[in-house]
């Protein structure tokens, strides 16, 4: 092992658990800033949307009239940052009448039990 390899810490598995709807509360925006930072730090980032958090990914958001920044644009940047592990909990989507086709970025369904397993596999889970 070379010196450089030795000094470089192994990336951590960080899962961001998002449970809030956008605009009514600023946690979703602040969570997204943290996600981008974690990715810039080279960490292994997973993004999960649960409960009202799934509304963050709804297409056609236009907050111009409430004079807020559009969250959609930052979500579109996730791919550029190399964040590809994006999941929406299936039951949360169904309860809210949402389908994958209504989401603004490609996200995968995750079943509740799979999510249980995924949480256990992380180094840290950050809830927003």
């Amino acid at each position: 092992m070379t010196d450089t390899e030795h000094k470089k810490p192994k990336p951590k598995k960080l899962l961001f658990l998002n449970r809030r709807a956008p605009y009514g509360c600023s946690l979703p925006r602040e969570a997204l800033d943290a996600v981008l930072m974690a990715s810039a730090f080279g960490q292994q980032v997973t993004l999960v949307f649960l409960d009202d958090g799934v509304f963050q990914l709804k297409k056609k958001q236009d907050p111009a009239d409430i004079e807020m920044k559009n969250l959609s644009k930052t979500f579109a940047a996730l791919e550029m940052y190399g964040v590809n592990e994006i999941y929406v909990e299936q039951a949360s989507m169904q309860k809210r009448g949402l389908t994958l086709a209504q989401l603004l970025i490609p996200a995968q369904f995750i079943a509740t039990q799979e999510l249980s397993l995924m949480l256990e596999q992380q180094d840290q889970v950050l809830s927003f």
Partner: peptide
Amino acid sequence: SGLGQMVEAAMVSDRMITFG
């Protein structure tokens, strides 16, 4: 300081605990 401090804390700590 910046958000990098939060990410660094998650990287080096055994337990990162959120008080929301």
